[in-house]
Design a protein around this nucleic acid. Structure first.
Lengths: 172, 172
DNA sequence: ATGATATGTCAGCCTTGTTGACATATCTCA
DNA sequence: TGAGATATGTCAACAAGGCTGACATATCAT
């Protein structure tokens, strides 16, 4: 197998090598791991006529009851037209409920229905099973370290927002 | 904020809780991290009129010169029609070259051109920069641990194949 | 009352995945 | 040598889920 990296390999020892030698292992493992990670839900979503886009919406609404459209758009980073397409279906099939805002009646507050929470939980458990299988037989500090790594992988501009969304106002 | 997990929370102490309590933090962090991770290449690919599908093909061909169509299909897990659409463009724009197999002349052996290797390397470096930023100031064993975690996240059926593809026949 | 804001909707386009059907070249094996 | 398996290419149609642009409506804020 010829070398895919022409020069750059053994040229500078020290700092440059660390900065410039591609981390092919982590790049490729991240790709394969993410693909398998989302494949579990995919199978089940198909039974309901839903796709990944529905999953994301259902997940974040279920996790954050009373979420507004604007907040959801901010989380998903898609256009309102894209969101509306899947959200409409989730509402029609009674997995999500949209109530008018009380303080600001222009807003729509989104809530997962009992059926919606049930599906969201089912999918989250599936993914949790995979995560726990990976963590089992690893060092006890692995989970915390992986969590820290993933957070630092996120754009610094978003990381505070994500941190708040994921960890909320918890004690940990 | 109401509780998104109806029952199941404080019911059983012990093993069940570990198995059944969703790991929302890792699930969500994985989603946000992956999204930002692929966004770096996206910007550059746009300048060339390429998308993510082109990136994946170019990456694996560049990393594995002489790859056949069948092997590439096996890695990407898409249909040959999907692959052919993007592969044709990469060949037309001279980022990938297709040579007839020598042992088996039915096969096409794929090679990245100089231009193709250059782009692949540029994108890999971008992603590496993000990875290194995340790893900097983390424990030295972090990289190895994250790598092990990602590998274990992969379907057990694929993991041997992925391990071979990623780590090849190296010493580490 | 007016302009800004939150949301909804129509129409059309792109990328990237899918299936099914069929063509061609080449290899393998009886 | 001839038949069937294999590797690849290609056409056509479709679906999911992104996008843009334009415009409508209701409500809020000043």
């Amino acid at each position: 197998m010829p070398d895919a990296i022409p020069a750059l390999k053994a040229r500078h020892p020290g700092k440059d090598v660390l900065a410039e030698t591609p981390a092919y292992d982590l790049i490729e493992l991240f790709f394969f791991a993410y693909r398998d990670f989302v494949s579990d839900p995919d199978r089940i979503l198909g039974e309901y006529g839903f796709g990944r886009a529905h999953h994301r919406v259902l997940h974040f609404v279920s996790r954050n009851p009373g979420l507004t459209i604007a907040e959801l758009l901010d989380i998903l980073q898609i256009t309102k037209q894209s969101l509306n397409r899947v959200l409409k279906e989730l509402i029609e099939k009674d997995f999500i409920e949209s109530r008018m805002g009380t303080a600001d009646r222009r807003q729509r507050l989104l809530y997962a229905t009992a059926q919606g929470r049930e599906l969201a939980l089912k999918l989250a458990k599936l993914q949790t099973r995979r995560i726990m299988r990976a963590l089992s037989a690893m060092e006890p500090e692995a989970k915390e370290l992986v969590s820290r790594y993933l957070l630092r992988l996120i754009d610094p501009d978003h990381s505070a927002h994500v941190k708040h969304l994921v960890f909320g106002s918890e004690e940990t």
